[in-house]
Computed example of a mutant assay.
Amino acid sequence: MKKYEGSCRLSQQQLIDEYFMDVRAKLLDVAAFLDRIDRSVECNAEEDFRMMAMREGLQALCTRAPYRVRTIQMIFSDPTREPLSELDRKSAFGAYDYHRDKEGLR
């Protein structure tokens, strides 16, 4: 028996009936975003850390592994434990730039 089996009180059919249209809309939003990226006038973001995280998250989404939400959340999360001495920007990026640490910018 799977570790997470039976942890939701709704049946699979009930979940589909309740949430399918919302999830469908979100997938269409993702597809539209990716289409706009592909059609942009300049292809200059292949190595952007946010797009790299997006591709990794989409790959994780397509697996049947348990706890996909945790896996995907961790892909986008900052793994560091030490607080910054000062803010380095005014807003969040939505993903963690792993290459930044390697370049000694953190």
Rank of each mutant, 00 (worst) to 15 (best):
M1K: 13
K2M: 07
K3N: 11
K3G: 00
K3P: 07
K3Q: 13
Y4R: 13
E5Q: 13
G6C: 06
G6I: 03
G6Y: 05
S7N: 10
C8Q: 07
C8H: 13
C8R: 07
C8W: 10
S11R: 08
S11D: 10
S11Y: 07
Q12C: 10
Q12A: 14
Q12R: 11
Q12E: 15
Q13N: 14
Q13I: 05
Q14R: 09
Q14D: 04
L15K: 09
D17C: 09
D17M: 06
E18T: 10
Y19S: 09
Y19P: 11
Y19I: 02
F20K: 12
M21C: 10
M21Y: 15
M21F: 09
D22I: 09
D22N: 11
D22R: 08
R24S: 04
A25H: 01
A25R: 03
K26P: 05
K26T: 10
L28H: 11
D29W: 06
V30S: 03
V30Q: 04
A31D: 15
A31V: 13
A32T: 09
F33D: 13
L34E: 13
R36C: 10
I37K: 14
R39G: 01
R39L: 14
R39Y: 08
R39N: 05
R39D: 06
S40Q: 13
S40H: 04
V41I: 08
V41K: 15
E42M: 12
E42T: 07
C43M: 15
C43F: 09
C43D: 14
A45T: 11
A45V: 15
A45E: 14
D48Q: 08
D48N: 08
M51A: 00
M51K: 06
M52H: 08
M52K: 14
M52T: 15
A53P: 04
A53K: 00
A53Q: 01
R55A: 07
R55M: 13
R55N: 05
E56N: 03
L58K: 01
L58V: 00
L58A: 00
Q59T: 12
L61C: 00
L61N: 00
C62P: 00
C62G: 04
T63M: 02
T63R: 02
R64D: 12
Y67M: 14
Y67Q: 15
R68P: 08
V69S: 12
R70I: 06
R70F: 04
I72P: 05
M74W: 08
M74L: 10
I75G: 04
F76N: 07
F76A: 09
S77E: 12
S77P: 07
S77A: 15
D78K: 01
P79C: 00
T80V: 11
T80A: 09
T80D: 05
R81A: 12
E82S: 10
P83S: 03
P83W: 01
P83A: 02
L84P: 11
E86G: 09
L87H: 01
L87I: 02
D88W: 07
D88R: 11
R89F: 08
R89V: 05
A92D: 09
A92K: 03
F93R: 15
F93Y: 09
G94W: 02
G94M: 03
G94T: 03
G94V: 05
A95K: 02
A95G: 05
Y96N: 09
D97R: 03
Y98E: 10
H99R: 08
H99M: 12
R100F: 01
R100A: 01
D101H: 06
D101C: 01
D101P: 01
D101A: 07
K102S: 02
R106I: 12
